[in-house]
Write a protein that binds this DNA or RNA. Structure first.
Lengths: 170, 170
DNA sequence: TTTACTGCAAAGTGTTTGCAGCGAT
DNA sequence: ATCGCTGCAAACACTTTGCAGTAAA
């Protein structure tokens, strides 16, 4: 039930949710924060700061990128969003998931699929035992090719004998 | 009385190793590349570009940071080094390990411990079956506190009720 | 000799920050 | 009426790139 318009009721709702989160922490509930929070929770996947900015700006053209960064930082601090370190590049954000989950990333089309697995917990426990660490955050990313990209013919891997001829390090 | 210069025998060795890697790929074996390769393989852990630069510059003061980046890119392309995405921040590099391994990162002191686990493979297989992905890269980072930092008293976790009073988002 | 590679400086990303005005409380 | 938050522009950290000279092959 995504809305096309900039307007009213829906915004009221966002604002309520935002208020619940922010005022409890002694922070002010601003339209920008409510908007960004809504963009994040409406998004199916993970967004980077610029995507949040562009999506939010469609609804409030006066929004600035610094506010996006500041809000992302605040929400992260409040535990409402999590930074995801997919492959390389810059940061991605997602609303903090209720339960631990991990990512399957397609190197062909960029699709990201989330998954859960009991093995992840086993692994955490195993490592806590053997290392003495107290582990609080587990991140796991499996990278490869999704069924679609496999079907459409994938680039054959092989790190070494790269058929690199020219200066293709750019 | 002189000698802050690039020395001798040891360099010969580095150069041999570097040559084996580079000339096979049709790339030139330069002293800079040999040096950077040596710095990386001598390093116990993971280095970021600037650390590589500083360490290498001690041995060849004329080395430039861009060469470090270019070489890191080349070696990565040749499969000799891997980019590691520890927590946040910038990139880290390590010589590509012979066998898959993962990281335990201490959020207190920054120490990084590598580990391996059969569970990781199980998990990969499990996910390949259920998702249809063909997984080629698995990265796992467990973050927490190492025994030492636990002993020395750790900051109590808890994302929500953060006792944040001022603007500590900086 | 050829031309890939290097150093330098300048340009690019992504992200952060100082400041004055604005708006939530 | 406060003073936390915003927009703007300038500053930053990290990485990439154009160019002319240098050195590996």
């Amino acid at each position: 039930m995504r809305l096309h318009m900039i307007s009213n009721k829906n915004d009221m709702l966002e604002t309520q949710e935002a208020r619940a989160i922010l005022s409890g922490a002694g922070r002010r509930t601003t339209s920008q924060r409510a908007l960004i929070l809504d963009v994040l929770s409406s998004a199916s996947g993970h967004l980077d700061a610029d995507e949040v900015y562009r999506l939010a700006k469609e609804r409030d053209p006066r929004l600035s990128l610094s506010t996006v960064y500041r809000t992302l930082g605040l929400l992260k601090q409040l535990g409402q969003v999590s930074e995801v370190h997919l492959s390389e590049e810059h940061h991605h954000y997602e609303v903090t998931p209720g339960s631990q989950h991990y990512h399957l990333v397609c190197m062909g089309c960029g699709r990201v699929v989330e998954f859960q697995s009991a093995l992840a917990d086993e692994l955490r426990v195993e490592q806590e035992r053997s290392s003495g660490f107290m582990v609080s955050v587990v991140s796991m990313d499996l990278k490869g090719y999704c069924p679609d990209c496999q079907a459409r013919g994938l680039p054959d891997p092989g790190p070494s004998a790269a058929g690199a001829s020219e200066d293709d390090i750019r």
